[in-house]
């Protein structure tokens, strides 16, 4: 869900150790990188390394059918062009019920199947969903590799609140890191204003730094990144001057990392 805000389609690269996804947004300003290790799943099997090209917008719609208690099984057969999602309602009361359909998620003009609504109404029964896969070129998970001058660790809920609040007030934000303070300042859309409203950061913040850093970013992207906040209690902001920001959410057996190019120049 977090990824689908940034990228519309991407490859899930599957191998014996993990599932990985890496994709840039259309403007090439932001990049999202996700890894979920095999131990993070109740059961995991991958007989052959393969990319699963998935329309994330469609996948998100399908995932909305799931309830919190559902166990979701993802399956893709060898040479198949379909990803199967099976939701198990974990309820002995209902007899197994399979609802199978397939649509071509990559065709944005095709109407959403009307029986999708019926499918939603039938929850929590067993549901069997298919998503058509597209084959794309494999990705390199090592890109980009960067060393950073600063790392700020703070509660992800705080980060979410700060960027959401500031996005009400302006389009851009300046993040400055010195030894003892992180200053996240709203930048007014019009450059006439001289004073900025600073949001001082509360407790639970750890600053590691080699060098003072000051960078300007688009708030719209930071707000989208912060939607991953529910995955981890903490978020790390890794920064160097004139280098893309890395917003990292680490969770058990995996991570979601978002990169954002800074605004540069005067």
């Amino acid at each position: 869900k977090s990824c689908s805000i940034l990228v519309t389609d991407a490859n899930f690269e599957c191998n014996e150790e993990n599932i990985m996804l890496q994709a840039m947004d259309n403007s090439h300003i932001a990049l999202v990188s996700v890894e979920i290790g095999a131990p993070g799943f109740t059961s995991y099997r991958c007989d052959r390394t393969m990319p699963l090209g998935v329309d994330l917008t469609s996948l998100t719609k399908v995932l909305r059918c799931a309830k919190d208690e559902n166990i979701c099984t993802l399956k893709a057969a060898d040479e198949a062009d379909v990803l199967n999602l099976v939701y198990d309602a974990k309820s002995a009361f209902f007899s197994p019920f399979f609802f199978a359909f397939m649509w071509h998620g990559r065709d944005a003009s095709s109407p959403f199947p009307p029986f999708f609504l019926l499918c939603s109404a039938l929850l929590p029964l067993f549901i069997h969903l298919n998503i058509s896969l597209s084959s794309q070129t494999p990705i390199t998970s090592s890109w980009p590799e960067t060393k950073y001058d600063t790392r700020v660790t703070l509660p992800s809920a705080e980060f979410t609140r700060i960027v959401r609040d500031l996005s009400q007030l302006g389009e851009h934000v300046r993040i400055e890191v010195s030894k003892e303070v992180v200053r996240i300042s709203k930048l007014k859309a019009k450059s006439s204003a001289e004073d900025e409203d600073n949001d001082s950061i509360p407790t639970g913040v750890v600053i590691e730094m080699n060098q003072h850093v000051s960078l300007t970013f688009s708030l719209k992207y930071l707000v989208n990144f912060s939607k991953s906040g529910s995955l981890s209690g903490e978020v790390q902001l890794l920064m160097s001057n004139d280098v893309p920001l890395l917003v990292a959410y680490d969770f058990t057996q995996g991570y979601i990392r978002c990169y954002l190019a800074p605004k540069i120049g005067d």
Binding site: M24, S27, H28, I29, A30, L31, T140, W143, P144, T146, T216, S218, D242, V243, P244, Y259, A261, K263, I264, G265, D266
Partner: peptide
């Protein structure tokens, strides 16, 4: 004015 370069300007081509 600040400009918004793409990620490839920083990391090089993918």
């Amino acid at each position: 004015a600040k400009t918004q370069p793409g990620l490839k300007n920083f990391f090089g081509p993918k």
